[in-house]
Design a protein around this nucleic acid. Structure first.
Lengths: 219, 219
DNA sequence: CGGCACCTTGACTGGTTGGTCAGGTCTGCT
DNA sequence: AGCAGACCTGACCAACCAGTCAAGGTGCCG
């Protein structure tokens, strides 16, 4: 009864450990997103996943190390989401796919997005190195792709950075400011609202950079 | 020597009080923005404006009351920034002016924007009433204006809410994510970069909703 | 079955924080 | 000048928090 700790008792030692770590990370993601790093307490995270506080410190040496793992997890998902950006060939397909994917992630990983936003807003004290290495090189790659599109006159000449920031800002807004959006909407967005928002964001941005959607609906 | 507290000793009692309150609010805005509500300490705010901590509690009964005043101040600036939205006549002039003003505010009130973002991200525990009353009615007014533009076929038919969210998200991104932007930019944006970003944001959004900038530069 | 490594946990601690308060200082008014 | 009330502040406290620890439980391997 003491050992269970909410997880299955089947599975090898290593798997059990992974499951417990993931349960802690999931709980921590929500608590950090809702309270911020300073406002979150190890006790609240422990309660949220049904473990005694001392047990958290067995798996994660300190609050900061736990927090770092949470932020790293989001960052990885963020980066993987960009694959479609450069596997597609046309600017329209690439951007439409990337924006739609980011909107989907805002819906499915609201708390992760909030933790990331929090961390960056506070000056990225924990993951500054990621900004300077991984994010910077990722961005430079995509900027180069957009510049190529512009050179090929497939896209109206705009500074690629402002375009990327616009995509990041708009898509992540639906996660970070979900509470505001839901207050104005008298409740969570339903499936059709998410689809409508995604389509509108895609259309405005694509038209905005000079790509006319080829499927113009007749009035 | 004891009474001065960093403020001028000239001026009436009421003016001195206002000046001290504003100094505290200014310091609190920065500290809350950088550390979050939970991470900020009254001691840090006191140190930042050169007052003993006990003095803060003379002017603001509690940390939460001080925080509320900070958020209220930003919110008021936010709302006033929207005047141009409905004093201008054409959609192009109105939106261009509104977006440019919001970009300017992101540059001048970075910390205020961050505090607001923080508050909303954490579920608006302190200012939920503002979202439900002032912000809601403000939004409904602007939505009605945009709907009229659409009915008059001055603007392509898009859900006005997704358009507003896009404007809010994109402009505020330059304040809330300033650290990320500056890391990628190897330093703060200069005047010409701010102008370029503002222009690009305006152009993409206006073109995106079917307004062709009338001053198309010849290639 | 015996021993060892891994896991769990209640109780504890050193340090920090928001908030209080008594006593002092200064200002404006009469 | 003298006083009342506004203003200032060092010292203090109860509450809370991250992190520790030692004692005990559990599964695995020989």
């Amino acid at each position: 009864m003491a050992q269970t700790g909410g997880a299955e008792k089947t599975g090898s030692r290593a798997i059990m450990r992974e499951e417990t770590e993931r349960a802690i990370l999931d709980a921590a993601e929500v608590v950090f997103a809702e309270k911020g790093f300073g406002g979150a307490t190890m006790q609240a995270i422990a309660d949220s996943c049904g473990l005694p506080k001392a047990n958290l410190h067995y798996y994660f040496a300190s609050k900061e190390k736990l927090y770092r793992r949470v932020v790293e997890r989001i960052f990885t998902i963020w980066l993987e989401a960009a694959d479609s950006f450069d596997t597609e060939l046309s600017p329209e397909a690439a951007l439409r796919s990337y924006i739609a994917r980011k909107m989907q992630l805002s819906r499915e990983h609201r708390y992760g997005s909030k933790v990331w936003a929090n961390e960056v807003m506070h000056g990225a004290p924990i993951i500054q190195d990621y900004l300077e290495t991984t994010l910077r090189s990722w961005t430079e790659t995509r900027v180069a792709v957009i510049r190529r599109w512009i050179a090929e006159e497939q896209v109206r000449p705009v500074d690629p950075r402002w375009l990327l920031y616009m995509i990041w800002a708009t898509t992540q807004h639906y996660a970070d400011f979900a509470h505001q959006i839901e207050t104005l909407n008298h409740g969570p967005l339903d499936d059709s609202q998410w689809a409508s928002a995604t389509e509108t964001v895609c259309d405005i941005i694509l038209r905005g950079i000079g790509i006319r959607p080829d499927a113009d609906r007749p009035a």
